[in-house]
Design a binder for these strands. Sequence first.
DNA 1: TCGCTTGTTCGATATTATTCGAACAATAGC
DNA 2: GCTATTGTTCGAATAATATCGAACAAGCGA
Lengths: 102, 102
Amino acid sequence: MRQFVHPSSSDIRLESVLHALSDPVRLSIVRQLASEGEATCAALDGGRPKSSMSHHFRILRESGIVKTRNEGTSHMNELRFEDLDNVFPGLLAAILNAAPRV
Amino acid sequence: MRQFVHPSSSDIRLESVLHALSDPVRLSIVRQLASEGEATCAALDGGRPKSSMSHHFRILRESGIVKTRNEGTSHMNELRFEDLDNVFPGLLAAILNAAPRV
DNA sequence: TCGCTTGTTCGATATTATTCGAACAATAGC
DNA sequence: GCTATTGTTCGAATAATATCGAACAAGCGA
């Protein structure tokens, strides 16, 4: 497990952010990170295989939504809320504010 | 050309809206509609084939972002801004507020 | 009715995403 | 070093999207 790709704020693209959040699994991850502050990958799988979760975390990282840091053998994830809010003011707040609908 | 599928406000899903707007062509359409109020399909193709545009307008319609009405032989499109803002307050505004980046 | 214009629908292709098992990598602890 | 834990990467199968030509549909006007 090595270095992760974290785009700088200026490289965050709106389309990528929207695409990343258009997936129910990833949206769920983001909602949980928003309410819990930070969490490991394992804490956020909903019983899904590790490889699937790793894929989704990568999409979230590379779109600039999530920041991952190593913490022992596990990876701690947190939202890049400030970065996103600087680049796209109000966007993430509006998305998180939207009540999850079934 | 017949009736179009326009979901009611309560059927608009966040994932569908985000997915619809994650495409550059559709995002561009939405931006133009926001600045011009309404427009026909032809006015918004960027030299793209009609069938491609028709596809994108359908995605925008079925996700609840755009409302299309018949106007003679042409179709007039407008944003469902109020509907969207009621369901997801601030979302579309935040997206439109994001400066288009190259 | 015949054309003309505007879009939709169909069908086929190409690209991109998702999913997940299996193998691998890195760290911590014994 | 060995083992267990946590994720990543690889590879392949499946599914979803995008793109666009060609055919079709509907309204308008001569």
